[in-house]
Protein backbone atom coordinates (compact mmCIF):
# COMPACT_ATOMS: atom_id res chain seq x y z
CA UNK A 1 0.00 0.00 0.00
CA UNK A 2 1.31 3.45 -0.90
CA UNK A 3 0.53 6.03 1.74
CA UNK A 4 2.43 9.26 2.24
CA UNK A 5 1.83 11.94 4.83
CA UNK A 6 2.35 15.00 2.62
CA UNK A 7 3.77 17.37 5.27
CA UNK A 8 5.39 16.75 8.63
CA UNK A 9 7.74 19.04 10.53
CA UNK A 10 10.47 17.14 12.41
CA UNK A 11 12.93 18.97 14.67
CA UNK A 12 14.15 21.71 14.70
CA UNK A 13 10.72 22.96 13.53
CA UNK A 14 8.88 20.46 15.71
CA UNK A 15 9.78 18.59 18.91
CA UNK A 16 10.25 15.15 17.32
CA UNK A 17 13.38 13.87 15.61
CA UNK A 18 13.02 12.63 12.04
CA UNK A 19 14.04 9.09 13.09
CA UNK A 20 11.25 9.02 15.67
CA UNK A 21 8.80 10.36 13.07
CA UNK A 22 9.79 7.48 10.79
CA UNK A 23 9.18 4.85 13.50
CA UNK A 24 5.82 6.34 14.44
CA UNK A 25 4.65 6.90 10.84
CA UNK A 26 5.51 3.30 9.98
CA UNK A 27 3.48 2.07 12.98
CA UNK A 28 0.57 4.22 11.80
CA UNK A 29 0.47 2.58 8.35
CA UNK A 30 2.53 4.92 6.17
CA UNK A 31 5.36 3.92 3.86
CA UNK A 32 6.75 7.44 3.38
CA UNK A 33 6.58 10.97 4.77
CA UNK A 34 7.42 14.38 3.36
CA UNK A 35 9.68 15.95 5.99
CA UNK A 36 10.07 19.70 5.57
CA UNK A 37 13.68 20.89 5.78
CA UNK A 38 15.16 17.38 5.70
CA UNK A 39 17.20 15.59 3.03
CA UNK A 40 15.79 12.55 1.18
CA UNK A 41 16.73 9.14 2.59
CA UNK A 42 15.37 5.64 2.80
CA UNK A 43 15.46 2.98 5.51
CA UNK A 44 14.05 -0.57 5.30
CA UNK A 45 11.59 0.35 2.57
CA UNK A 46 10.39 3.52 4.31
CA UNK A 47 11.19 6.73 2.41
CA UNK A 48 11.69 10.16 3.87
CA UNK A 49 11.07 12.67 1.08
CA UNK A 50 12.75 15.98 1.71
CA UNK A 51 10.39 18.90 1.38
CA UNK A 52 10.95 22.59 0.73
CA UNK A 53 8.24 24.91 2.01
CA UNK A 54 7.89 28.42 0.60
CA UNK A 55 5.98 30.57 3.07
CA UNK A 56 6.50 34.00 1.47
CA UNK A 57 3.70 35.08 -0.88
CA UNK A 58 6.19 36.22 -3.55
CA UNK A 59 6.68 34.52 -6.90
CA UNK A 60 10.40 35.35 -6.78
CA UNK A 61 10.83 33.21 -3.64
CA UNK A 62 9.02 30.35 -5.39
CA UNK A 63 11.27 30.68 -8.45
CA UNK A 64 14.40 30.62 -6.25
CA UNK A 65 13.16 27.52 -4.40
CA UNK A 66 12.34 25.85 -7.70
CA UNK A 67 15.90 26.50 -8.96
CA UNK A 68 17.37 25.17 -5.70
CA UNK A 69 15.27 22.01 -6.10
CA UNK A 70 16.28 21.55 -9.76
CA UNK A 71 17.18 17.88 -9.18
CA UNK A 72 13.46 17.25 -8.56
CA UNK A 73 14.13 14.70 -5.79
CA UNK A 74 12.48 16.79 -3.09
CA UNK A 75 8.92 18.05 -2.95
CA UNK A 76 8.37 21.78 -3.44
CA UNK A 77 5.41 22.95 -1.37
CA UNK A 78 4.08 26.52 -1.54
CA UNK A 79 1.67 28.21 0.86
CA UNK A 80 -1.28 29.55 -1.12
CA UNK A 81 -2.00 33.24 -1.44
CA UNK A 82 -4.42 35.40 -3.39
CA UNK A 83 -5.83 34.50 -6.82
CA UNK A 84 -3.04 36.15 -8.84
CA UNK A 85 -0.31 34.54 -6.75
CA UNK A 86 -1.85 31.06 -7.00
CA UNK A 87 -2.29 31.45 -10.75
CA UNK A 88 1.36 32.47 -11.15
CA UNK A 89 2.67 29.73 -8.86
CA UNK A 90 0.83 26.96 -10.68
CA UNK A 91 2.70 27.88 -13.87
CA UNK A 92 6.14 27.72 -12.23
CA UNK A 93 7.88 24.55 -13.30
CA UNK A 94 8.97 22.45 -10.33
CA UNK A 95 6.13 23.40 -7.96
CA UNK A 96 4.49 20.20 -6.71
CA UNK A 97 1.96 21.19 -4.07
CA UNK A 98 -0.02 24.28 -3.02
CA UNK A 99 -1.33 24.19 0.52
CA UNK A 100 -3.11 26.28 3.15
CA UNK A 101 -5.85 27.40 0.77
CA UNK A 102 -8.28 27.42 3.71
CA UNK A 103 -6.39 30.45 5.06
CA UNK A 104 -6.75 32.46 1.86
CA UNK A 105 -9.67 34.53 0.64
CA UNK A 106 -12.61 32.69 -0.94
CA UNK A 107 -11.89 33.60 -4.58
CA UNK A 108 -8.23 32.58 -4.36
CA UNK A 109 -8.92 29.16 -5.83
CA UNK A 110 -11.51 29.23 -8.60
CA UNK A 111 -12.45 27.00 -11.53
CA UNK A 112 -9.74 28.52 -13.77
CA UNK A 113 -6.94 27.75 -11.31
CA UNK A 114 -8.48 24.31 -10.74
CA UNK A 115 -8.24 23.58 -14.47
CA UNK A 116 -4.66 24.92 -14.63
CA UNK A 117 -3.77 22.79 -11.64
CA UNK A 118 -5.06 19.67 -13.41
CA UNK A 119 -3.21 20.56 -16.64
CA UNK A 120 0.12 21.30 -14.89
CA UNK A 121 -0.24 18.37 -12.47
CA UNK A 122 0.13 20.54 -9.37
CA UNK A 123 -1.51 19.03 -6.28
CA UNK A 124 -3.67 20.87 -3.77
CA UNK A 125 -2.98 19.86 -0.18
CA UNK A 126 -5.78 19.18 2.27
CA UNK A 127 -4.17 19.97 5.61
CA UNK A 128 -6.08 18.05 8.30
CA UNK A 129 -4.58 19.99 11.22
CA UNK A 130 -7.32 22.68 11.23
CA UNK A 131 -9.97 19.95 11.53
CA UNK A 132 -8.19 18.66 14.64
CA UNK A 133 -6.99 21.86 16.27
CA UNK A 134 -9.76 24.35 15.49
CA UNK A 135 -13.18 24.43 17.08
CA UNK A 136 -16.49 26.10 16.30
CA UNK A 137 -16.90 28.57 13.48
CA UNK A 138 -13.22 28.39 12.41
CA UNK A 139 -13.40 24.65 11.88
CA UNK A 140 -16.71 25.08 10.04
CA UNK A 141 -15.05 27.57 7.69
CA UNK A 142 -12.13 25.20 7.04
CA UNK A 143 -14.53 22.31 6.30
CA UNK A 144 -16.50 24.59 3.97
CA UNK A 145 -13.35 25.58 2.02
CA UNK A 146 -12.12 22.02 1.77
CA UNK A 147 -15.56 20.83 0.59
CA UNK A 148 -15.43 23.53 -2.08
CA UNK A 149 -11.97 22.31 -3.21
CA UNK A 150 -13.19 18.69 -3.21
CA UNK A 151 -16.10 19.69 -5.45
CA UNK A 152 -13.71 21.35 -7.91
CA UNK A 153 -11.45 18.29 -7.76
CA UNK A 154 -14.34 16.01 -8.79
CA UNK A 155 -15.04 18.30 -11.74
CA UNK A 156 -11.51 19.03 -12.99
CA UNK A 157 -9.53 16.07 -11.65
CA UNK A 158 -6.50 17.86 -10.23
CA UNK A 159 -4.39 15.81 -7.78
CA UNK A 160 -5.02 16.10 -4.04
CA UNK A 161 -2.65 15.32 -1.19
CA UNK A 162 -3.54 14.72 2.46
CA UNK A 163 -1.28 15.83 5.28
CA UNK A 164 -1.35 15.81 9.06
CA UNK A 165 1.03 18.81 9.24
CA UNK A 166 2.35 17.22 12.44
CA UNK A 167 5.03 18.93 14.49
CA UNK A 168 5.00 16.20 17.11
CA UNK A 169 4.38 12.47 17.48
CA UNK A 170 1.13 13.32 19.24
CA UNK A 171 -0.16 15.18 16.17
CA UNK A 172 0.80 12.44 13.71
CA UNK A 173 -2.32 10.66 12.43
CA UNK A 174 -2.75 7.07 11.29
CA UNK A 175 -3.99 6.17 7.81
CA UNK A 176 -7.37 5.19 9.27
CA UNK A 177 -7.67 8.53 11.12
CA UNK A 178 -6.77 10.44 7.95
CA UNK A 179 -9.50 8.55 6.04
CA UNK A 180 -12.00 9.40 8.81
CA UNK A 181 -11.03 13.09 8.83
CA UNK A 182 -11.08 13.26 5.02
CA UNK A 183 -14.64 11.93 5.05
CA UNK A 184 -15.62 15.10 6.98
CA UNK A 185 -14.76 17.24 3.94
CA UNK A 186 -16.51 14.94 1.48
CA UNK A 187 -13.56 12.82 0.31
CA UNK A 188 -14.69 9.20 -0.01
CA UNK A 189 -12.35 6.38 1.07
CA UNK A 190 -11.14 5.37 -2.45
CA UNK A 191 -10.38 9.02 -3.29
CA UNK A 192 -8.61 9.52 0.04
CA UNK A 193 -6.43 6.45 -0.57
CA UNK A 194 -5.64 7.81 -4.04
CA UNK A 195 -4.74 11.18 -2.46
CA UNK A 196 -2.39 9.44 0.00
CA UNK A 197 -0.56 7.91 -2.96
CA UNK A 198 -0.34 11.17 -4.94
CA UNK A 199 3.10 12.33 -3.71
CA UNK A 200 4.94 9.48 -5.46
CA UNK A 201 3.22 10.32 -8.75
CA UNK A 202 4.15 14.02 -8.34
CA UNK A 203 7.83 13.14 -8.00
CA UNK A 204 7.84 10.73 -10.94
CA UNK A 205 5.12 11.93 -13.30
CA UNK A 206 4.08 9.76 -16.22
CA UNK A 207 5.52 11.37 -19.36
CA UNK A 208 4.18 11.23 -22.92
CA UNK A 209 6.78 8.57 -23.79
CA UNK A 210 7.49 5.65 -21.51
CA UNK A 211 10.24 3.06 -21.73
CA UNK A 212 8.72 -0.40 -21.44
CA UNK A 213 11.24 -3.13 -20.64
Amino acid sequence: MLATDATVFPSPQGNTSVRRMVIEARERGFDSIVAIGQPCWEQDGFSVIGGTLVREPHVKAVLNASRANASGKGLLVVNGGNNAFNRAVIQVKGVHVIRHLHKTEKNSFDHIIARMSAENHVAIDIDLRPLVMLRGVWRQKAIQRYSDITGLCERFGFPLTLSSNARSVVELKSVREILDLASLVGIAEPDARKALATVKSLLSPVGPVQVVL
Binding site: M133, V170, E171, L172, R176, D180
Partner: peptide, 23 residues
Protein backbone atom coordinates in the same frame (compact mmCIF):
# COMPACT_ATOMS: atom_id res chain seq x y z
CA UNK B 1 -18.58 3.72 16.31
CA UNK B 2 -17.43 5.40 13.07
CA UNK B 3 -18.54 8.81 14.29
CA UNK B 4 -16.93 8.21 17.66
CA UNK B 5 -13.63 7.18 16.01
CA UNK B 6 -13.65 10.34 13.87
CA UNK B 7 -14.28 12.48 16.95
CA UNK B 8 -11.47 10.69 18.81
CA UNK B 9 -9.02 11.71 16.09
CA UNK B 10 -9.86 15.38 16.78
CA UNK B 11 -8.68 15.18 20.41
CA UNK B 12 -5.50 17.22 20.62
CA UNK B 13 -4.88 18.30 24.20
CA UNK B 14 -5.80 17.57 27.78
CA UNK B 15 -4.88 19.84 30.71
CA UNK B 16 -2.65 21.88 28.36
CA UNK B 17 -0.65 18.78 27.39
CA UNK B 18 -0.68 17.34 23.88
CA UNK B 19 -2.49 14.01 23.74
CA UNK B 20 -3.81 11.75 21.02
CA UNK B 21 -6.50 9.10 21.44
CA UNK B 22 -6.41 6.75 18.49
CA UNK B 23 -9.13 4.16 17.89
Amino acid sequence: EGRLATALSTVSCMNEMGISIRS
